[in-house]
């Protein structure tokens, strides 16, 4: 464990807690894409298949349980909660996210480190996570104004993967044969997708203006 990875995990944890806090306290999911949340639930479900078979550490298991629990409860809140689901704007959240699931699955079948079920599922979860934010970014473009919590959620989500890239660089230089091209490229693509959001997020933060994304 290095500082970059710990910071990345904490940032990722903060992003899901900010979202849960927002939904649970103000009982609203305005501006949140259910599609992105469903994709993230699928990412964790396919990435943590070995949660009970492959014990790494107490920390690792706890964090996996938190990510699984939070992502599925966020989906439940938006879909099932009697008050929260009313603030879900399904007319705006129209990204056909199942269309990106299939290419990720096909790609995972073609490009992976080992052709076993768990390894293909794990690779699929990496590819899917790289594009899971797309429905949310599309929704933000549409709804233009972003409330603070949603902006912070997306920012923290992008920042966690950027910190993971620093972690991979650190591990590459400090550990022998630590080479995971698939993870690195998927992580880089994921972070680049946030790039323009980061730009507008910092602009609004610098000018102390409301965060607005161009049409």
């Amino acid at each position: 464990m290095n500082i970059f990875r710990l910071a990345g995990d904490m940032t990722h944890l903060a992003s899901v807690l900010v979202l849960l806090l927002k939904i649970h306290t103000i009982k609203s999911c305005a501006g949140i894409s259910l599609k992105t949340q469903e994709l993230y639930a699928l990412v964790f479900a396919t990435r943590y298949l070995d949660i009970f078979t492959n014990y790494i550490s107490f920390y690792n298991t706890i964090m996996k349980l938190i990510f699984l629990g939070s992502s599925f409860s966020i989906v439940w809140y938006i879909k099932r909660h009697k008050i929260v689901h009313r603030s879900y704007d399904k007319d705006q959240d129209t990204f056909r996210h199942w269309f990106i699931v299939l290419p990720c699955l096909v790609l995972a079948l073609l490009i992976n480190e080992r052709f076993t079920f768990k390894e293909v599922m794990w690779t699929f979860s990496l590819y899917l996570e790289a594009v899971a934010i797309l429905p949310q970014l599309v929704l933000l473009q549409r709804t233009r104004n972003i409330d603070n919590l949603t902006g912070q959620y997306v920012f923290l989500l992008g920042a966690y993967r950027a910190l993971y890239i620093l972690n991979w660089i650190y591990r590459y230089f400090t550990e022998d044969h630590y080479i995971h091209w698939i993870t690195w490229i998927a992580g880089l693509v994921q972070t680049l997708l946030y790039a323009d959001f980061f730009y507008y997020y910092f602009q609004s933060w610098k000018n102390n203006a409301k965060l607005e994304l161009p049409a």
């Binding site: 990875r5 995990d9 990722h12 070995d50 492959n54 790494i56 550490s57 690792n60 964090m63 996996k64 990510f67 080992r114 794990w122 993971y164 972690n167 630590y178 995971h180 993870t183």
Partner: peptide, 10 residues
Amino acid sequence: PPFNLMKDEL
């Protein structure tokens, strides 16, 4: 290290 131990990241 064994392959699955390489999956020590979240």
